[in-house]
């Protein structure tokens, strides 16, 4: 299961949302991250966006909303309402393989189902060890590579 979203409705809005970066991992955007669930537009032009937060304690929760409003306003969309929905809960399963590939490229080991195979973003070795389940941001753990000895961040599987 990757995404159950219909991006064919209002593609022009989705395109703009594709330009909103994740504030903590700017290499990927909010659509790729999977937080934007639905986009609707009423006859009077109001845009309704539903988002699902990634982690309950993610300090970027409010920033997500601000960045979306800012981007849409830039293109003349001023009547925007953003609501948050908790069910279904956000999961790293909603990230596509292409998104995971991007994470690996910028040095963050992407989520692996059940935290089983954790790849070193430096040398691609899978011989890695957990340093601490908690990392520099809420969504990551600290690992180090037994092959190249480099430390790295791992995006927790949620």
């Amino acid at each position: 299961m990757v995404l159950d979203r219909d991006t064919n409705i209002h593609p022009e809005i989705w395109e703009l949302l594709n330009e909103v970066p994740d504030p903590e991992i700017p290499a990927i955007n909010l659509v790729e991250l999977g937080v934007i669930r639905t986009v609707e537009r009423t006859d009077d032009g109001t845009i309704y966006i539903v988002i699902t937060p990634t982690y309950t304690g993610c300090p970027a929760k409010q920033l997500f909303k601000d960045l979306i409003l800012e981007k849409l306003a830039e293109y003349g969309h001023h009547k925007v309402e953003i609501t948050s929905r908790l069910n279904p809960a956000w999961t790293t399963d909603w990230m596509s393989d292409a998104t995971k590939e991007k994470l690996l490229k910028i040095g963050i080991s992407p989520p692996s189902v059940g935290d089983r195979v954790i790849v070193c973003p430096q040398c691609k070795s899978t011989d890695t060890k957990l340093l601490s389940p908690f990392g520099s941001v809420a969504c990551q753990s600290m690992y180090s590579c037994n092959t190249c000895k480099e430390p790295f961040s791992y995006f927790k599987c949620h």
Binding site: P53, Y55, T56, G57, C58, P59, K61, S84, L86, L131, S132, P133, F134, G135, S136, A138, M142
Partner: peptide, 23 residues
């Protein structure tokens, strides 16, 4: 350091959990 981060992360989780429940 790692332990400091672990406790602060756990604190953030709990603040977030409380916030969603209050909403």
């Amino acid at each position: 350091l790692e332990e400091d981060i672990a406790l602060s992360n756990t604190s953030l989780d709990l603040f977030g959990r409380a916030e969603e429940l209050y909403k």
